[in-house]
Computed example of a mutant assay.
Amino acid sequence: MGADPAVGLTAETRLRMGGDQRVAAWTERQRAKALHAGTYEAAIHNMLWRIDGQADHNRQFYLYRVRLKPTVAVREGWVVEPGDFVGAMSL
Rank of each mutant, 00 (worst) to 15 (best):
V74K: 01
A55C: 02
L63W: 10
V72Q: 01
A42Y: 10
G38V: 06
A55Y: 07
Q30W: 05
R50I: 01
R29Q: 08
R65M: 11
Q30R: 10
R67I: 10
A11G: 00
A88Y: 04
T39M: 03
N58T: 11
G8T: 13
P70E: 13
Q30L: 11
A88R: 09
Q30H: 07
A24P: 04
L68S: 12
F61Y: 14
R65F: 11
H57R: 04
M1S: 03
L48S: 06
G53R: 12
F85H: 03
T13A: 13
V86D: 14
V23S: 04
E81I: 01
P70H: 08
G38Y: 14
G2K: 05
Q60P: 03
V86K: 06
P5D: 09
G19L: 04
R50V: 00
T13D: 09
W78E: 10
K69S: 14
R14A: 08
A43M: 09
V74H: 01
R65D: 08
G19V: 12
L15R: 15
V86W: 12
Y64D: 07
A11Q: 11
L48F: 07
N58P: 01
A55F: 04
A3S: 06
T13E: 15
R59V: 03
T39W: 02
W49T: 12
A37M: 03
G8H: 10
N58A: 13
A73W: 14
L9W: 03
M1E: 05
V79G: 03
A55P: 00
L68G: 07
V7A: 15
A11L: 01
W78T: 05
G38E: 06
M1C: 07
H36G: 02
P70R: 12
Q54N: 14
R50Q: 11
L91G: 01
R31F: 06
V74T: 03
Y64R: 12
M47L: 06
A34T: 15
V72A: 02
D4A: 00
I51R: 03
G2R: 01
A37D: 06
A37P: 03
W49L: 13
G19A: 14
L15Q: 08
L35F: 14
M1W: 02
G19D: 14
A25H: 05
